[in-house]
Write a protein that binds this DNA or RNA. Sequence first.
DNA 1: TCTATTTTTAGAATAATTCTAAATTTATTA
DNA 2: TAATAAATTTAGAATTATTCTAAAAATAGA
Lengths: 126, 126
Amino acid sequence: MTRYEKEIYGIVSNSYEHLTAEKIFEELKKKYPGVVLATVYNNLNKLWEAGMIRKVSVEGMADRYDRMEKHDHLVCRHCGKLADIGLEDLTLSLKGQLGEFFLSYDLKVFYICPECRERLNNENER
Amino acid sequence: MTRYEKEIYGIVSNSYEHLTAEKIFEELKKKYPGVVLATVYNNLNKLWEAGMIRKVSVEGMADRYDRMEKHDHLVCRHCGKLADIGLEDLTLSLKGQLGEFFLSYDLKVFYICPECRERLNNENER
DNA sequence: TCTATTTTTAGAATAATTCTAAATTTATTA
DNA sequence: TAATAAATTTAGAATTATTCTAAAAATAGA
């Protein structure tokens, strides 16, 4: 593992936020001011292809990167923010339904996050 | 509903393919040669916001549009192709786990599609 | 140390999508 | 119906996210 690979892996896998390449770049620049965005993309792709990090894609937003540890995502339909949630594991059920075709799955649950709910409430009261 | 909205809705909701905006544009041009790509995006967004069509997003690929009818997706990890599949409905289980927060969900199952499996086999045999 | 390989940089290029302003179409009202 | 307002479409520029290319730098191997 190269310097940047290691560093980027650390940033992504130790964060409970869901960082975009741009955010990771900003983070990395604190320690390595000379680094360049293409390097971030290079290494994110390498790490993703090696199965060491996740890439989370939601319609119309930049991809976000996430630690591997098993968990699902809540996605706010208003602001797009992601939150982690541990739902029942579907692996067995899916393997049962699909056989050895199965590789992995991605479950996203859409909702309105607490902040947006509150904001929407306030707007309605006015 | 405007002319184009209706037409685009028809294309998307009567197709079992998973069309990109570009493909829909090509399709629409057969009937309305003067139409412009921005119109396609405008109307796709309107239809999506109105909950009349789905938008399917997979890391690193252009968004694809799909009919609403309840179904899940198989995504080939090699070529990115989508296939429909009807898996067990999770709505009740998720409502149970999340309460009225729940809006909807999106389940993608990753696999290697038959074509890619075959291709990979052939390559290995050589 | 010399050579080959890999990684990084810099910045251009591409792809997908959105934006803006003007033109056109459609709907509403006098 | 004419006049006005509102919504849609067009044309093309702009933006955003991401990838590509070629050269430079770093690292690893013989």
